[in-house]
């Protein structure tokens, strides 16, 4: 008797928990997607069942810093370039809403490469300033996908910074790592030359000629370096908004242990890669363990773009030296072998 009572009490408790803890009723209800600004990535999804996920972005046109002393009017999702990182799970149904700030001069929209349907949502989301549009879609294919504005003149909207990444996690999730970061490359075209100070206007001519004045990672996002500790596994979600250049993505002083080339989650990943190609409108996932402290520089290894046009980022690794893996030799190797 007492055992039966205990069991039914336990059952009642479990039922209550299901009702009370939001994490347990997601399958039945809705949840709001956690959005992050680059270089941050939302936490891995813990759910094991599909949910209805709400995502809302707002398009804005904002002045910001393109380089030291150089201002530019960026067109953005949520005020940053790249726009927020969106994370959902394969099988989820996403209710996507797009607001266009009343202060915008232009119509904007979104084409998410993760969407199966006309224009990736572009036709349903052409949004006037002050307006709001939306559509519902089901995340059928896992992977890391670019999203971008698709309002004509489309190349101009992309060149001004309207892109970001959405991750559709596979049902079983991705392997656990210690740090995840979000990086998107973009090429920019200003009327003035590289380094010309002041407010710079967009140059349609340079964009058509595919001659950027700047190439940037996370052009208008949270400043600061990426950080990791010696011994940690780092995963980078790297996208390329373009509009024109294909990135030869490389981290100086590291080898990618694993690369999901072209963001093809579910395919056998490549191993031991030095430089990976990321086309405009594409993305990749790279993973590596950091073994030695120091500053590791992210570059587009089409190297003029890095050294002369700005395509650099820094991963700062702190921790104990690891002389077995790397050790500088003083005075031409006198202490070698000690």
């Amino acid at each position: 008797m007492r055992i039966r009572k205990a069991i039914s009490a336990a059952l009642a408790m479990t039922a209550l928990m299901f009702l009370a803890v939001p994490g347990n009723i997601m399958a039945a209800g809705e949840e709001k997607a956690v959005l992050t600004t680059a270089p941050q990535v939302p936490p891995a999804i813990k759910r094991t069942t599909p949910a209805k996920v709400l995502v809302e972005l707002e398009t804005t046109e904002v002045k910001g810093k393109l380089a030291d002393g150089v201002e530019y009017e960026f067109w953005t999702f949520n005020g940053t370039v790249p726009g927020p990182f969106i994370r959902v799970r394969a099988g989820d149904t996403v209710e996507f809403n797009l607001k266009n700030s009343a202060a915008s001069k232009n119509i904007h929209s979104i084409d998410l490469h993760s969407v199966t349907g006309p224009g990736g949502g572009a036709k349903a989301t052409q949004t006037i300033p002050g307006g709001k549009t939306g559509f519902l879609w089901k995340a059928l294919n896992p992977g890391i996908y670019i999203y971008h504005c698709a309002t004509s003149h489309i190349p101009t909207h992309i060149a001004n910074g309207m892109y970001g990444l959405i991750l559709v996690e596979p049902e079983k999730g991705l392997p656990k790592v210690d740090k995840e970061y979000y990086v998107v490359q973009g090429d920019f075209y200003t009327v003035g030359g590289t380094g010309d100070k002041g407010m710079q206007a967009f140059s349609l001519d340079k964009a058509k000629a595919e001659q950027p004045t700047y190439v940037k990672f996370n052009a208008l996002s949270t400043p600061g370096n990426l950080k990791a500790n010696v011994g940690e596994k780092v995963r980078l979600y790297v996208g390329n908004g373009g509009p024109n250049l294909t990135s030869a993505f490389h981290v100086i002083g590291e080898i990618f242990d694993v690369v999901y080339q072209q963001g093809a989650v579910g395919s056998e990943p490549a191993k031991n890669v030095q430089t990976t190609l990321i086309p405009p409108g594409g993305a990749a996932i790279v993973e590596f363990k950091v073994d030695v402290p120091g500053a590791y520089i992210l570059v587009d290894h089409a190297i003029f773009r890095a050294i002369d046009k700005g395509a650099v980022g820094i991963l700062e690794v702190t921790g104990n030296e690891n002389p077995q893996v790397f050790k500088p030799l003083k005075e031409g190797g006198k202490d070698a072998g000690h």
Binding site: K123, A124, T125, Q126, T127, I128, G131, T133, T151, S152
Partner: peptide, 14 residues
């Protein structure tokens, strides 16, 4: 509905 040569479809917005 827009046109395939660059006119934006405003059916969802107006």
């Amino acid at each position: 509905e827009g046109t395939e040569y660059g006119m934006i479809p405003f059916g969802g917005s107006l």
